[in-house]
């Protein structure tokens, strides 16, 4: 357990591209991964986060600070999360969902995955493949058959030429 010191403890987090970040322990332990490290006594030195780059970690820390400053009010927390994610593009959201998963932050994980789902709703199959980096492993015949089965779901899809 972290020692009771009276002054707020600060942790130093290190991204996989060697950027260092200072963050209040009380905010950082929103991440179960970090909390476990703190409880195991690793808090003294630098905490290396091998799966998160500096850009994403900076964003996650902004979220940690923002959300922990809000008292126990689920409505306000929700609107903070909505606002925090509102201007993020798909690539950023994808990096964040991986980071939230690695850091074991369930509230951020839920919010980011719901946001990605919302972004996907009107998108085409081609858009999804490109953005998620998925290889089409259907034969042309198989793909045609799958599409034919749910033909109506291809109506009203956004045109495919956006980013």
């Amino acid at each position: 357990m972290a020692a009771e010191t009276g002054t707020p403890t600060t942790l130093t987090l290190k991204s996989n591209d060697d950027e260092l970040f200072s963050v209040a322990e009380s905010a950082a332990i929103l991440s179960v991964t970090i909390r476990n490290m703190v409880e195991d006594g690793c808090a003294g030195g630098v905490i290396p986060l091998d799966n998160v780059d500096g850009k994403t970690l900076a964003s996650v820390i902004t979220y940690m600070n923002g959300i922990s400053a809000i008292p126990a009010d689920e409505e306000k927390k929700k609107s903070y999360r909505d606002k925090f994610l509102s201007d993020k593009d798909f690539e950023t959201l994808a990096d964040m969902v991986l980071a939230a998963n690695y850091l074991n932050m369930s509230c951020l994980m839920d919010a980011v995955s719901a946001k990605i789902a919302q972004v996907m709703e009107k998108k085409s199959v081609g858009w999804v493949r490109r953005k998620f980096g998925i290889e089409n492993d259907y034969t042309p015949e198989e793909e045609a058959a799958v599409k034919e089965e749910h033909k109506w779901t291809f109506e009203g899809v956004e045109t495919d030429d956006d980013n």
């Binding site: 839920d110 789902a117 199959v125 799958v146 749910h150 779901t153």
Partner: peptide, 18 residues
């Protein structure tokens, strides 16, 4: 992510992704 996609129409469409 997909379990949070409420639109069933989108989910059926995305069966064609892979």
């Amino acid at each position: 992510i997909l379990s949070k996609l409420s639109s069933v129409k989108s989910l059926l469409r995305f069966k064609a992704v892979s």
